[in-house]
């Protein structure tokens, strides 16, 4: 159900010589929630896509419970930022999409099929989608669509759930609701989750551990263990939370090469004379 994920010296150099990722080594415990943040261009999405098998790696190994993996697989499903739902399928059909694929139907017994039906209904309820079971994606709000995408990814019973800025296109209020929903999913489903975001607050609020990547080439800058146990709206205003947020944001700023821009800003806003 859940798995230990080990990344061994993953590198990525794009054709043309652009070095996106310097060797990345990382071990993720079963059932852990890892947030990956970093300045734009630090390769955080590339790293996630390599783990998903959607992008090739130049070197290194990915071990899921000790087994090396190559290419995409249903043990690592992904939630995308947008446009990934199938607009011609209803909410329920989208969630059950993986059941129409040969890999999931192969060797399926009657009890498996019964389990799948129960599971799809359970996911529908877990995500609060029961009312819109027969609706098409066009009839849903952005937040609801992402709930369907998450349910669809969970339906395949992945060992690892990968999320690539899944709430990047949502408004701030919907995002906060989605955060609490994700925490609920985490406690109900106990999957290993890797979550890429540019929103530091989101990463701290959700994750057990936040990995800060530095760009040019993408590499691990710092790893912060998140000490908070109770996650609640008020946590976002907790001084310890804010200190941590400040520290991570400062690391991202320091690694992003933004200091030049900040100096420019200072000269522009400096009092004349």
């Amino acid at each position: 159900m859940t798995a230990r994920v080990v990344l061994q010296s993953i590198t990525k150099t794009f054709p043309g010589g652009f070095e996106a990722l310097a060797p990345i080594d990382l071990a993720l415990e079963p059932g852990s929630f890892t947030g990956i943040v970093g300045a734009s261009g630090c390769g955080k999405s590339t790293l996630l896509r390599i783990i998903a098998g959607l992008e090739t790696r130049s070197a290194g190994r990915i071990l899921i419970d000790g087994e090396p993996v190559a290419g995409p697989g249903r043990d690592r499903t992904m939630v995308f930022q947008d446009y990934s739902l199938y607009p011609w399928l209803t909410v329920m059909q989208n969630i059950r999409f993986c059941r129409t694929l040969a890999v999931h139907a192969r060797n399926a017994t009657d009890s498996d099929i019964g389990d799948a039906t129960r599971r799809s209904v359970a996911l529908l309820n877990l995500m609060g989608l029961a009312r819109v079971e027969h609706a098409y994606p066009k009839q849903l709000s952005g937040g609801m669509r992402q709930r369907v995408a998450i349910a669809r990814a969970l339906m395949a019973k992945p060992a690892v759930l990968l999320m690539d800025e899944p709430f990047g296109a949502l408004d701030a209020q919907t995002r906060e609701v989605m955060h609490d929903l994700i925490l609920h999913v985490k406690s109900a489903e106990k999957r290993t989750i890797i979550f890429v975001t540019h929103d530091v607050e989101e990463a701290i609020y959700l994750a057990d551990r936040v990995v800060v990547l530095a760009p040019h080439p993408g590499r691990i800058d710092t790893i912060e263990d998140i000490p908070f146990t109770a996650r609640h709206r008020d946590l976002r205003l907790d001084p310890a939370f804010l200190t941590l947020k400040r520290r991570i944001t400062d690391r991202i700023r320091a690694t992003a090469g933004l200091s030049g821009d900040l100096d420019d800003l200072k000269t522009l806003t400096a009092p004349a004379g």
């Binding site: 959607l54 697989g73 249903r74 690592r76 947008d82 990934s84 993986c98």
Partner: peptide
Amino acid sequence: VPMAQIEAARTLGAS
């Protein structure tokens, strides 16, 4: 056809 639709199917195990 949006790439995300294709990639979502691929990670779910589609051939």
